[in-house]
Structures are given as C-alpha cells and as structure tokens.
Amino acid sequence: MITTFADTFDTLFNLQRALQARAASDWLQNQTTSQGPFPPINVFQQGDALLAIIELPGIDKKDLQIQAKENTIRISGKKAASYPEGVSVHRRERSFGEFDRTISLPVQLDADSIKAEYRDGILALFLPRSERDKPRAVKIS
C-alpha cells in the first residue's frame, strides 16, 4: 500500500483505524468470511424468521447491494462523501469509503423471499428460514 503524507490527520487516523479494526474484528471469526466488520449488525428473532438490523446512515440506495445464498448474506456498497470545496473544516468524525461484508447465519434462508428495507439510515433485512430448515412435528404411530 502506498501512503502519501498529504494529510497528516488521515495518516494518523488510518493507522488508528487499522489498529482498532484488528482488535474488533474477532466477530464471528470462525463462522463468517467477512471482509470487514462494517457495517455493524444486530440479529433478532421474529417468529420463525430472522430480522437483521444494520446501521448505515447516509447511504444512497443505489450504492447498496445485498446478495443472499443458502445461509449467507453479503452486504456491500459505498458511502460517498460530498463536501463543497474551499470550506474550513472544524470536525470530521464521519467515515466514508467502501464496505463489503458477508455474514453466515446458522440457519438456511429462503433467498427468494428476503425483504430489505432502507429507512432513516437503518437497513432492515427480513430473513425467512427455508421450508426444509424448519422443524417439523413428528407423528408418533
């Protein structure tokens, strides 16, 4: 990786981010093929289905891709910055860039009936379990 020192703050912040990422990326390590811990995800149970709620403020829907297969979901996209030129910056805490994350779930998903909704900076994924994965009552004869 070539690092230019045009912006000293960027250099410093990148290093800090890289260090933090190393410490924080233990999530689901033996289960997921995640390429990065962003975006953070919460998974809830809703009846038979799963509901994944992901915080992604300020993203254009066009820049967001969701793919699903069997028991994995891939969320990728980019968060673009748009600031006018020639302003004096007081604070810059928001981060921008690209992300790509794959999550493996412990259940098989019905990929065709997954629903995604993006509102108020929250991505909600409604993940129904596949029929063959659902438990069945066994009749005793």
Binding site: V87, H90, R92, R94, I122
Partner: peptide, 21 residues
Amino acid sequence: NADIYETQDALRVILEMPGVE
C-alpha cells in the same frame, strides 16, 4: 458522529443519527 465545516456565510453541522425519524 459529527462533521462541521464553515463556509463564508454559514456554519454547517452534519450529524449521523441512524434510526431517528
């Protein structure tokens, strides 16, 4: 998380509050 910048005639404050209507 906040981004703040100043233009000639205004101060712009941008705050990330995911989930807030």
